[in-house]
């Protein structure tokens, strides 16, 4: 079990005079085996924070632990899978070298995310959006990470499919005891999967705490504005 910790993380994007701080000194801990939801509007730096945690973006200052063993599930299952690679090959690529029975491992992972073994031979374009996102999840799990970051994984899916992916994520997290940072702009979705929630605005964490506390009694005005703008039925 590993906790995910951000200590004074600062990320600067761009070069020279045009460089801007996108993340300004973020301190955040996702306790081991739990889910922390990260909410905020687009451009607030939440995706950059995720990319920094897996080493896709360099840090300008601060420290992220653990340094390895973190996997990221991307937002768009249409662009995050190589269109020329079969599902089986994409998942197998992520399986650690030491695993002997690779084909068996791929079958096990596909089964874990509710896909049939036949899917291994297909190309991403033959799969629906929800199925592709399952593949992306299987691939992230194949690397046997201690920590998984899910970056807006349901925002490009239909509501009925979103439900299946969220149920799957919840079950897998509980079954495998994963530590997870769940990023979304949808508060209802975050509330559904998270134990704790952190609210990010303009590169800073403005509020964090247990999900029920933050969403029922927000202390920060920005959190309140975010809650007020959630569209409601009726």
């Amino acid at each position: 079990m590993t906790a995910l910790e951000f200590h004074g993380v600062r990320v600067r994007l761009g070069r020279g005079r045009r460089a801007v701080d996108v993340v300004h000194g973020v301190d955040l801990t996702v306790p081991a085996g739990t889910v922390t939801g990260l909410v905020g509007t687009s451009g607030c730096g939440k995706s950059t924070l995720a990319r920094a945690a897996v080493g896709l973006v360099p840090l300008a200052a601060g420290r992220i632990a653990p340094a390895g063993g973190v996997q990221l599930v991307f937002q768009d299952p249409y662009s995050s899978l190589d269109p020329r690679m079969t599902i089986g090959a994409a998942v197998a690529e992520a399986v650690p070298r030491r695993v002997r029975d690779r084909a068996g491992e791929v079958r096990r992972l596909l089964d874990l995310v509710g896909l049939e073994p036949e899917h291994a031979g297909r190309l991403p374009r033959h799969l629906s959006g929800g199925q592709r996102q399952r593949v992306a999840i299987a691939r992230a799990l194949a690397a046997r990470p201690g920590v998984v970051i899910a970056d807006e994984i349901t925002s490009s899916l239909d509501v009925s499919v979103q439900g299946m992916v969220l149920n799957l994520i919840r079950e897998l997290q509980r079954e495998l005891g994963l530590t997870m940072l769940f990023i979304s702009h949808n508060l209802a979705v975050v509330r559904y999967v998270s134990d704790r929630v952190a609210v990010m605005d303009a590169g800073r964490i403005v509020e964090s705490g247990p999900v029920d506390d933050v969403l029922s009694a927000p202390r920060n005005p920005y959190t309140r504005a975010l809650l007020d703008s959630v569209p409601k039925l009726g």
Binding site: R51, V54, G55, L56, V70, Q71, L72, F74, Q75, D76, S79, S80, L81, D82, P83, E93, A94, A136, R139, A143
Partner: peptide, 9 residues
């Protein structure tokens, strides 16, 4: 994204 995903792996 798929290249980024491969890099993460």
């Amino acid at each position: 994204d798929f290249v980024a995903a491969a890099r993460v792996l």
